[in-house]
Design a protein around this nucleic acid. Structure first.
Length: 906
RNA sequence: GGGCUAUUAGCUCAGUUGGUUAGAGCGCUUCCUUGACAUGGAAGAGGUCAGUGGUUCGAAUCCACUAUAGCCCACCA
């Protein structure tokens, strides 16, 4: 074996072998299924730390289940990401001086496909660098043929069920992207703006000539004066006595002369501004609702790109909205309508994609009625059929689901699933919308044509007479079908039958609403079963200061750079180790040294084994070797291995990835390397000691494999645990030893505890050496005062290995305490004395003993207090009481010895 | 405004139904390079578990309030 582990070589070597041999691929049928669908990253995406964390967790779970014998499927794929992808291509076009309109829809979409073909594989390639065992043979894309078919079918079914409707609605509109945005696609940011106080003259008042201040007016406060031409009322709170007399009257809309009513609505806050609000139903979501309640006219005064239209008035028509704001304010002031201006900070919505200020805009959009879909999805979590891990996320899920709003699913883009709604030409979508008689919703144009013929009675209609709705569907309209569309739905496939519902869904908290909740609804509605059994939510990766990683902050770590610097195994292991499901994870570069160092440790330990190959019998260690007389250290090693296997399996079953990593780390490093390897070097029966070492090492490699796939595969082959053509990926995950093996080797808690206690003694002696500045390499004389005769006998039988562990030229074991003029240190099974032959600093030792004595006496006191407490004796469990008593007895013995020592140093 | 979470060693975090003297990694101090490993080994210092009150024989753990920090949802024109 090479002196250094070459991670890059191992990664480059093994991944292609795994993939080529189909190790990630199972066919439905045999065994129990364990299936997971990957949260599909945007096809435009590049791998970031969030992916690395999310996918590491999934790969750990999948590899573990696979090794446990499950029939596993981890289904990969990408999302077509409507706006994001279209933006990327539009940017490229811009460099050529073109807009998408110059190409036309068909050519533009072709261009996006071209882009996808060329660059869309980036993230898919990068995922391989992580070592993911996603089944690439089943890779899907949300816009591929199968997924598109599913989308069309779902749309039609929901439409026919009356759950999809087209409606006039106020939506968040990005003027730059030219599309509606979902509420969650709008990011609110603090804005330093103004509050303009504007006078609206009351009709019927005698005073008031244009150009002069009106005496009788209502004062309205607004942050958006440019929408004034769209006002169709002013409103006050019904309980506001100040203005009760105004309700029902009419006021004049400044600059326009139009008369609008004063209405009352609970939406108005009495305390804000003047307590009077202008109502602009076409340009504000709240005003829109007020308008609906009061039957107000909706006047849209802007164009799609946020310029004023002719309804804004001749003067402002064509102006940009912010330009118009200025002009209009100037005019208000000139007209004497502007009372005063205040500074005002509020939140303004921005497009999550291009950051343009979002406009509330009235438009016709397609919606999904969510309430009927949400109800069974709530029930599935309430009943426990689907479980959130950690459980508390279910509260957030309920909170959202119970207040769910209809989902605006149309987007004015070209890249995406086009809405399968058709109109007979001449009845354009604008005119025809809202009149369902003229909309034909069908999975194909041909089917729509048949419907049109039947409905209109015009048998001469051809496809050319049909016009498809120009809008495409929200990206999430395909992702919410992901758990079954990717398995072949709506076809009845073997995959769908076998792998649905999937087992676990692993994702971050930020898409619980976007994605998880909607998948729940779609799964239940179309498949009759929730799409997964467990929803595993992990935290977000943050930088060292706790900030979200983002491009604009420049605080992102690049997983590929980390893989380059530390190796994929290091990245994976460190992420697993520092990640808690319960909270976000703070990460900085130094964290990955843990993983890298661990890799090195594994490699070096493997080299040690390799160097001692000749000391190891060829035959593997196992029950077949029959009853053997094993030393206590060997039995302890096997017990530790047993415990580690049990622990790791148990923790992974509870999705405690972090604790599992810690458990296997500690097992390998502390138990195997720090203790057992040192023991094995001087073991009385080397062949047996090394046979055991090989056995536990091979188990440890398999325990580690889900976390560190490359180094474990490489080492397993180097050490001959696997032959060419075999893989650790499909080796059995260790389950611990059988009852027969345990009996044959005398594995029990007692021997485990005994060795633990013995190690305390070894540690104590090392501490003594350090305290008296005895060279760690020097050979010393050691005396042990054993707790009792039996322990003395037991210790005597292992003097050889104790000598090695203590680095002692002699070890004398005496039953019970004795008068020894040496420094000593107490453990559970006795006191270990170090002969210093005159090196002892009596004063220092006396101090140390006194301190120990005081501490011990203090502890006894606290135990006595407990044992003397009637309530404690009455209520505490018997085991606790017994434990306290035993502890006390030990401490009393310890005090006796310490007192003897104290006298010696006095 | 509604909801959720956190506060434990200098730093990042464990601590699973309340139960022996609260743990790990990093960092820090001291010591150690003759063949697994200095990306290492050994020893050590460091915490009144945010605060107050309550429940209990017993609280880092359960409850209430307070303080601080963070996240999500809805947002006042």
């Amino acid at each position: 074996m090479d002196k250094r582990y070459d991670a890059k070589a191992a990664e480059a070597k093994w991944y292609p072998i795994w993939e080529k041999n189909g190790y990630f691929h199972d066919e439905p049928g045999h065994g129990s299924p364990y299936s997971v669908v990957i949260p599909p990253p945007n096809v435009t995406g590049i791998l970031h730390m969030g992916h690395a964390l999310n996918q590491t967790i999934q790969d750990v779970l999948v590899r573990w289940r696979r090794m446990c014998g499950f029939n596993t499927l981890w289904l990969p794929g990408t999302d077509h990401a409507g706006i994001a992808t279209q933006n990327v291509v539009e940017k490229a076009l811009k460099k050529e001086g073109k807009r998408r309109q110059d190409l036309g829809r068909e050519a533009f979409v072709a261009r996006v496909w071209e882009w996808k073909k060329q660059y869309g594989g980036t993230i898919v390639h990068q995922q391989r660098m992580l070592g993911n065992t996603t089944d690439w043979q089943r890779e899907r894309f949300t816009l591929d043929e199968g997924c598109s078919k599913a989308v069309a079918k779902v749309f039609c079914q929901l439409y026919n069920e009356g759950l999809i409707y087209k409606g006039n609605y106020i939506v968040n509109w990005c003027p730059r992207c030219g599309t509606a945005l979902a509420n969650d696609e709008v990011e609110h940011e603090a804005n330093h703006g103004h509050l303009w106080y504007v006078r609206y003259p009351v009709v019927g008042s005698e005073k008031g000539v244009r150009g002069e201040p009106y005496k009788d007016y209502v004062m309205v406060a607004t942050t958006r004066p440019e929408t004034l031409p769209g006002d169709t009322a002013v409103a006050v709170n019904p309980s506001d006595e100040r203005y009760a007399h105004l309700v029902g009257k009419t006021v004049i809309l400044p600059l326009t002369g139009r008369e609008i009513p004063v209405i009352s609505d609970v939406y108005v806050e009495k305390a804000f501004g003047t307590g009077i609000v202008k109502i602009t139903p076409a340009h504000d979501p709240n005003d829109f609702l007020v308008g609906k309640r009061h039957g107000l006219e909706e006047i849209n005064i802007m164009t799609d790109d946020a310029h004023m239209n002719e309804l804004a008035g001749e003067k402002y028509c064509g102006m940009d909205r912010f330009e118009c704001r200025k002009a209009l304010v100037d005019d208000l002031e000139a007209g004497g309508f502007l009372d005063h201006v205040e500074d005002y900070d509020n939140q303004v919505g921005h497009c999550y994609r291009c950051h343009e200020v979002v406009e509330s805009r009235l438009s016709k959009q397609w919606f999904v009625k969510m309430k009927p879909l949400a109800e069974p999805a709530i029930a599935a979590v309430k009943s426990g059929e689907v479980r959130f891990v950690p459980e508390r996320w279910s509260k957030i899920y309920f909170n959202w689901m119970e207040n769910i709003q209809d989902w605006c699913i149309s987007r004015q883009l070209w890249w995406g699933h086009r809405i399968p709604a058709y109109y007979v030409r001449g009845n354009s979508s604008e005119e025809g919308a809202g009149n369902s008689e003229q909309v034909f919703v069908a999975e194909t144009a041909e089917a729509a044509l048949e419907m049109a013929k039947a409905k209109t009675g015009n048998v001469n209609l051809t496809l050319a007479d049909l016009e498809q709705d120009p809008d495409v569907l929200d990206t999430w309209f395909s992702s919410w079908l992901w758990p079954f569309s990717t398995l072949g739905w709506p076809e009845k496939t073997a995959d769908l039958d076998y792998y649905y519902p999937t087992t676990d869904l692993v994702t971050a908290q930020d898409i619980i609403f976007f994605w998880v909740a909607r998948m729940m609804m779609a799964g239940i509605h179309f498949m009759g079963k929730p799409p997964f059994k467990n929803i595993v939510i992990h935290g977000i990766v943050r930088d060292a200061q706790g900030r979200k990683m983002s491009k604009s902050l420049g605080n992102s770590l690049d997983p590929l750079e980390l893989i380059d610097a530390y190796s994929a195994d290091a990245l994976r292991f460190s992420l697993a180790l520092i990640t808690s499901l319960d909270c976000d994870t703070k990460v900085d570069k130094s964290k990955f040294e843990i993983g890298r160092n661990f890799c090195t440790k594994i490699w070096n330990a493997a080299r040690f084994l390799e160097m001692n190959r000749e000391a190891t019998p060829q035959a593997e260690f196992g029950a077949a070797s029959g009853p053997v007389q094993l030393s206590s250290d060997e039995r302890h090693m096997l017990m530790a291995c047993e415990k580690a296997c049990e622990k790791v399996n148990d923790l992974l079953a509870k999705y405690r990835i972090q604790d599992g990593a810690l458990a296997v780390y500690d097992f390998f490093w502390t138990q195997i390397c720090d203790w057992y390897v040192e023991y094995a070097k001087d073991a009385p029966d080397k062949p047996t000691a090394f046979a055991i070492l090989r056995d536990v090492f091979w188990k440890a490699l398999r325990l580690l494999h889900p976390y560190m796939p490359f180094v474990t595969e490489e080492v397993a082959h180097q050490l001959g645990f696997l032959k060419d053509g075999e893989t650790i990926l499909r080796a059995e995950f260790p389950k611990g030893y059988t009852a027969e093996e345990k009996a044959a080797w005398g594995l029990d808690e007692e021997v485990y505890e005994y060795v633990e206690a013995k190690r305390e003694m070894i540690t104590a002696l090392r501490a003594l050496r350090a305290e008296y500045k005895v060279n760690p390499a020097a050979w010393v004389k050691v005396t042990i005062a054993a707790k009792d005769a039996a322990t003395a006998e037991r210790l005597s039988s292992e003097v050889a290995s104790l000598k090695a562990a203590f680095r002692a030229e002699s070890v004398e074991v005496l039953p019970g305490a004795s008068e020894l003029a040496m420094p000593g240190s107490l453990g559970r099974i006795g006191t270990v004395y170090l002969s210093l032959e005159g090196l002892v600093d009596k004063a220092a030792e006396a101090k140390r003993v006194a301190a120990e004595l005081a501490k011990t006496q203090g502890f006894i006191k606290s135990i006595d207090a407990k044992l003397g407490n009637e309530n404690f004796m009455a209520h505490a469990p018997a085991a606790i009481v017994e434990g306290q008593k035993t502890k006390r007895a030990e401490l009393v013995a310890k005090i006796a010895q310490l007192e003897k020592l104290a006298k010696l140093f006095a």
